[in-house]
């Protein structure tokens, strides 16, 4: 899914994915089991075992896995900030498109 986007903005320009506080995480792996989008990876030999392997697979504005987390170890970026940023990128792109059209 290399061209994945959210509202026309390339997914990799949007910073949205779970952040794990490993001081709280107890390795229960409930989050891994819950999320159907292959965001997490588990490596039994690593420390910590849990890794946010594919942050861009995370569904923008989804926070569902954090509710499954007993010790409350999962947080997300600020939603209002993220929304603002997406709107700003869209606006800039629209303006750029207009410019291209005007120059044609």
């Amino acid at each position: 899914m290399s061209e994945s986007t959210f509202m026309g903005v390339e997914r990799d320009r949007i910073d949205w994915s779970p952040r794990i506080d490993f001081l709280k995480c107890n390795d229960c792996m409930d989050c891994v089991e819950f999320c159907p989008h292959q965001v997490f990876e588990v490596d039994e030999n690593a420390k910590p075992k849990l890794k946010v392997k594919n942050p861009n697979n995370c569904v923008v504005f989804c926070r569902a896995c954090s509710k499954t987390c007993g010790p409350d170890a999962i947080t997300f970026p600020d939603k209002a900030e993220t929304t603002k940023m997406i709107k700003a990128i869209r606006k800039a792109e629209k303006a750029a498109e207009k410019e291209v059209e005007a120059n044609e």
Binding site: R63, A64, K67
Partner: peptide
């Protein structure tokens, strides 16, 4: 609530879906 906040969820035997 704000746009993109969650508004509860719905659940089936397969999964839980958060209403965004």
């Amino acid at each position: 609530f704000e746009q993109f906040d969650d508004l509860g969820s719905i659940e089936s035997s397969k999964a839980v879906f958060e209403i965004i």
